[in-house]
């Protein structure tokens, strides 16, 4: 299988600040790659470099077999980029926006393709509505429709589901999987763990550095975290558990507290001591959130560290 995205050492600097630092990324064709990481970690910058919106300061690689440093124009014709912020024309109707996108992309059989996109996205009834009057979920559908009009081989989606309700998110992901089944490659950034789990593979980036990549199972296993669910006890419990030396993360989940730590034996010993006070605990699988917090903890914010 060939790679739709294959970059090594990708670097971007804004002034003295290195926003993306030597990132290696490989996305095989037809796969959905989830791109995760905290705000300001360099996800958007990476995506913008991949589609030629930002010049690359270091590193090399290809997108759809085209050199990202020299073939930005060709990449733009074959990739579809959906921005984080809604970036279509709010003072134009749904139909006018799609028509413009189709013309700009020189889509053959424009009318038919616009009609097809409207139909596919369920936008047919809103064709003459102003884009600015659409709600968040509909705007997102419109943006996606405009992005796929020219049948791109690669979709770059920057937090497409931010601020969208669960039902719309679910439908959106069904569509993404539909596209992948047709052979499209998708790189999608997100903050939602459930969305990460719907990806074939994920990449986790923090402070511009790629910290983990692989399938969800691989990334979780590689972290080697032990986790447990603790129940019983008062609302103060979380604070006490967080103070335990072996615990890296503790999250209150209703009446339970989910804990995780790198040292399984120490965690068990600490929790056993709590059990003596009448609490109960049982081992649980570590989740992606545990892993990410664990990864972040080992990589302090360079800006904080400099202080």
């Amino acid at each position: 299988m060939t790679d739709a995205i294959r970059v090594t050492g990708l670097t971007k600097r804004f002034g003295a600040r290195t926003v993306v630092d030597a990132v290696d990324l490989r996305v095989p064709e037809g796969r959905i790659m989830g791109f995760l990481g905290p705000n300001g970690s360099g996800k958007t910058t990476t995506i913008r470099m991949l589609c030629g919106l930002l010049t690359v300061d270091g590193g090399e690689g290809t997108v759809l077999g085209l050199d990202i440093r020299t073939a930005a124009a060709a990449i733009k014709r074959q990739a579809g980029y959906m921005t984080q912020r809604f970036s279509l024309y709010e003072d134009m109707t749904v139909g006018e926006n799609l028509d413009f996108a189709a013309r700009v992309q020189s889509v053959p059989g424009r009318r038919a393709r616009v009609a097809e996109a409207l139909d596919r996205m369920g936008l047919g009834g809103r064709r003459d509505q102003l884009a600015g009057h659409l709600s968040g979920g509909w705007k997102q559908r419109l943006a996606l429709a405009a992005t796929i009009l020219h049948k791109p081989r690669l979709l770059l989606l920057d937090e497409p589901t931010a601020g969208v309700d669960p039902q719309a998110r679910r439908e959106f992901w069904d569509r993404i999987h539909g596209f992948a089944a047709e052979g499209m490659t998708v790189l999608v950034s997100t903050h939602y763990m459930d969305e990460a789990e719907r990806c074939h593979a994920i990449a986790y980036i923090a402070y511009g550095k790629l910290l983990a990549a692989g399938s969800v199972a691989e990334v979780t296993a590689a972290a080697g975290l032990a986790a447990a669910d603790v129940s019983g006890g008062d609302p103060e419990l979380v604070r006490r558990i967080k103070a335990l030396p072996s615990v890296e993360t503790a999250t209150a989940m209703g009446a339970q507290v989910h804990v995780a730590g790198a040292d399984a034996a120490a965690l068990a010993a600490d929790l056993d001591r709590l059990a003596a006070e009448g609490l109960s605990w049982r081992p649980a699988p570590a989740n992606l959130e545990d892993v990410f917090i664990h990864l972040m903890a080992r990589r302090p914010d360079p800006a904080e560290a400099a202080r």
């Binding site: 589609c51 030629g52 919106l53 124009a73 733009k76 014709r77 990739a79 980029y81 921005t83 912020r85 809604f86 970036s87 279509l88 024309y89 709010e90 996108a101 700009v104 992309q105 020189s106 405009a146």
Partner: peptide
């Protein structure tokens, strides 16, 4: 200002 430039730049328009 409205952010539409980003979409515009991502198209093949020169």
């Amino acid at each position: 200002e409205r952010g539409t430039m980003e979409s515009l730049l991502a198209t093949p328009l020169t």
